[in-house]
Amino acid sequence: MAEEIFNADEADVLGEMVNIAMGKAGATLAEAFSGFVHMRVPEIHAVNSSAMNETRERLIKTYDRISIIHQEFFGEFSGDIAVIYGPASYTALREVLGFDDRDGDGRRQREELLLELGNAMSSTCITEVAAQLGLRTGVRPPRMAVFDLESIEAAQKLFDDSTAWKGQTLQISIIFHLEAHQLPFELLFTVNSDCMPMIKESLIKHL
């Protein structure tokens, strides 16, 4: 649990900051789909094998196949963020945006759409958390880490092959549910351990 890193009051302040960032990212998603987005309370954990296994199991249980957009953020607030899409996400995007990509290079168009939406959500979320913490950050361009893979294989790539969980201490998980399409979208981000002293200092100032 996050209490391994923060005391209960510090974790509460961070939770509220993430909540506000989630609200802005959720509004971005709602605008993209012209729909209503349900938001759950964000989960904040210390990065450990138990939290990772829990997330891995949840992903495998929730989705048959997934695509993952990955971005690094850097500066005083640094780490990695992943946007996780289920297979229905793209179909819904195609319906909402009203285009037909059955001819031509559909995969490229699909990747571009997922990258664009993922970039909008993750940049909004990271810059908002950093702004509230009063820490400087920047977000690198997104890349398609996993494209339409079976969730077991995708989770393996995310947790076993990736370097994103090495040297990280904090895992924050945000789940959005797009009402009209019954779709979950997830933002999963981890924070580098060398940022922790400044994050703690900032949280204490808010108490």
């Binding site: 506000i20 989630m22 609200g23 802005k24 959720g26 509004a27 709602a30 605008e31 729909g35 209503f36």
Partner: peptide, 12 residues
């Protein structure tokens, strides 16, 4: 008083 700022949240 909420962080959920999508216009439909207010309407609802």
């Amino acid at each position: 008083i909420s962080a959920d700022i999508q216009p439909l949240a207010k309407e609802r």
